[in-house]
Structure formats: structure tokens, C-alpha cells
Amino acid sequence: MTALAVAKTAKLYLGGAFVRSESGRVYRTEVAANIPRASRKDLREAVRAARAAQPGWARRAAYNRGQVLYRVAEMLEGRRREFVAVLGGGRGAGREVDAGLEALVYFAGAADKLSQLSGSVNDVAGPYFNFTVPEPVGVVALVAGERPALLGLVVPLAAALCGGNCVVALVAETAPLPGLLLGEVLATGDIPPGVVALLSGLRSELLPWVGSHRDLDAVDAVGCTPEQLTALEERAADSVMRVLPPGAAGAALRLSPQLAVRTLEMKTIWHPVGT
């Protein structure tokens, strides 16, 4: 008897659930058909869920966020073969999954060291303490890199998560399957519902809605072309949204705490100590 072939439907990861686009639309890439084509309303729902989840995620001890990210790495490790296959097989695919694992473990470790690395006690002329402490910027839209499809998502995603941000990610448009599959790793990796959303779709359709969404605190434009970046900046000029350009560090995807600091805001506090 031959085993029954079970075809898998690619789904968006939204609010902790795996769903089709509310619009019911799909699109086709070179290697896969019936990829959900997220609409502006899927984006809206994702931001709503992220906004609701953000205070709880940021309030967790940084150490705990690190533990969760480490568990995500454990889940990815357990599904290594599946990821290698969806990345096209071969040695390059294996190296990319390994690099993704390294990034997750790296930022798991970085989570409770960010305030030491980016914060400071400032020297001031007065009988005060003056501290600078980092805080998560809030809800970040991540335009993931087109290639490498997995790493271009995992590195900036882990970097933003470890600082206490929630992330609404547009996975690679031309190779969305690795990004969408990552949702299954995040869901079993104890990432709370809403903290991450993974949307596949057409960037030309979704980016204008990202740029004009006033409830997004930042856009990590790591996967944007220069034209897309300019268009995002123009739309975001109306609000206080941070538009984070790809930059050298983002393009090379070299692991550095600087990647996490991109999605932090610095708060400076004067603290009277008496004498």
C-alpha cells in the first residue's frame, strides 16, 4: 500500500494562528503556487494583534525573552531537514539553516545584555545621576530580505524580538515558503500569539499601507530597494514612525548587537540623589 500524499497549504501566521488571507487571494512564485496574498486588512489585523501583545512581551524579563528565542532555535534545529528541503536542498541550504540557528542563539544571549551594551551612566555637572536606558521602539514592520530567504528574515526578526519589540514581517515575495514555515517554529517555540506575524504577498501592494500606518512605530527596511525605501520614507513622514534603512550591517547580515540596537529607543533619566 502506498502512503497517501498529503499536500500542504501555505498559510499566513497571524495572531498566533495559521490562516489564509482574509481576501482569499493567492499568488504564484517560480517554485510554488497558491501562496497566500495578504491584503491591507491582513496587515491591519497583524498590527492590531502586535499592538495588543507588545506591552506583555516588553514587560517580560530580558532573560526570559532570551530563553524563548533559544527555544525557537531548538524548534528550528528539530526541523532542520524540512527547512533544508524548502530552501532547495544542497549544501548552501544547510549552511543557511545553520546560520539562522546561530543568529537565534546569538540574539537569545544578547537579550539581557542590550542595556549594558547600549545604555550608560552619563557624566553631568550636578548632584544627579543621569542614565540612558534602552527601550523597545514598539511594533516594528519588517520588510525581510529577498535573499537569502530564511536568513534575511531570521536575523532582523531575532534582533528586534530580543529587545522587546513585536514584529509584523513581510516575508520574501519571490521565495515565501521558508519564511511562512518559520511560523510553525515560532508557534511551537513559545513566542506568544501576536508577537510575530508573517505575511506573504506583493510588496508593491502592501508597502504603501505599511508606510501610512500610523500605529507602526518603525519599519525595518532591510529588504527594500532604494526606490521602495524612498517611497516608505515619504509616506512615513506624516507620523513619528522610524524608517530604518538597510545599511551596511543589515545587508551583510553579520551578527552584531548593533542589529538589535536599531530597534531600540534611548530614554535618558535625571535622577536626583540628594548630594
Partner: peptide, 10 residues
């Protein structure tokens, strides 16, 4: 009116 999603903070 504006064509973009709003923030409750406003």
C-alpha cells in the same frame, strides 16, 4: 479621509 490606518494614540 487620509487613506492610512490610524493610531489610537492620536
Amino acid at each position: 479621509h487620509s487613506g492610512g490606518y490610524q493610531s489610537p494614540d492620536d
